[in-house]
């Protein structure tokens, strides 16, 4: 009895303190349209995210940073390894979870601010921003209020709020995207270059937002190309070039084995 209790205590403390744990994760793309060539992306990915900290994926572009974020979000499949993510009182493995579980995790646990906004036709910016919050159970009017103040904070002119963002400029779209991602109460937040097309003033707003998230014990994992932003918020840098190198080596080893 005591054992069960203490082990569940351990699990619940893991859920709270390290809501994302990657173990030996590897990813490669098989391009069937190009003679089924296998392109290694990353291998031997091992790291954990701590609540209240912001980890940054480092390395040159094209090295596989986005792929890691997408695997955690369940958007890309992983070829091997475990991606344990906190969900309610337990941890689930996104690498093997069924689609419904992945969707449930996205709704409750893992938020994502993508580089580009994928919008629904006709849906106004305000509702795009409020949507994820409503999905989490927030009442519609208050979600819209919160979305409004967030958009205002990101300096998006109010006259745009009722328009669908499809025709917005890149920076405007990104701000809608940031509002959408930062409004929710996800304990894990993935950020894919959220500041890429923002001016200095709005970059500063995003830095503030990240700091607030950290204070709320959210675990963040991001890709930032701006040196200054990275310095402001990074608690840890994860070197993706290292994972890419292992993937390359594994790929070459397999190729040699096949050849031999």
């Amino acid at each position: 009895m005591e054992n069960t209790l203490s082990s569940s205590n351990t699990l619940s403390s893991i859920v709270k303190t390290t809501p994302v744990i990657l173990t030996d994760v590897a990813k490669n793309f098989t391009m069937h349209l190009r003679g089924s060539v296998s392109i290694p992306v990353v291998a031997g990915v091992n790291f954990a995210l701590r609540a209240g900290e912001c980890a940054v994926l480092g390395g040159p572009s094209g090295v596989g940073k986005s792929s890691i974020l997408k695997m955690i979000y369940g958007n890309y499949s992983a070829n091997c390894g475990q991606i344990m993510v906190a969900y309610r009182e337990t941890m689930v493995d996104i690498a093997t979870a069924d689609p419904r579980t992945v969707l449930a995790v996205r709704r409750e646990t893992v938020g994502y601010v993508s580089q580009f906004l994928r919008t629904m036709p006709r849906v106004p910016a305000l509702d795009v921003a409020a949507e994820a919050l409503v999905e989490q159970g927030e009442e519609v009017t208050s979600a819209r209020d919160k979305a409004g103040s967030m958009l205002a904070r990101l300096n998006l002119p109010e006259k745009l709020w009722q328009l669908p963002p499809a025709t917005f400029s890149g920076g405007e779209q990104q701000r809608v995207n940031i509002a959408r991602g930062f409004l929710t109460n996800h304990p894990v937040l993935l950020l894919d270059e959220p500041t890429a097309s923002l001016d200095a003033a709005n970059r500063a707003v995003v830095i503030d937002l990240i700091r607030e998230k950290k204070k709320q014990d959210v675990a963040l994992l991001g890709i930032f190309h701006d040196e200054d932003v990275r310095e402001e918020i990074a608690d840890a840098i994860i070197d993706v070039a290292h994972f890419a190198q292992s993937a390359k080596l594994t790929g070459e080893r397999n190729a040699t084995q096949r050849a031999g």
Partner: peptide, 18 residues
């Protein structure tokens, strides 16, 4: 078969990729 965005963004089968 799978989660919609995963099948679209990371298709596995040759036909899906095509």
């Amino acid at each position: 078969t799978g989660l919609t965005d995963r099948v679209l963004d990371d298709p596995q089968a040759p036909y899906t990729q095509l």
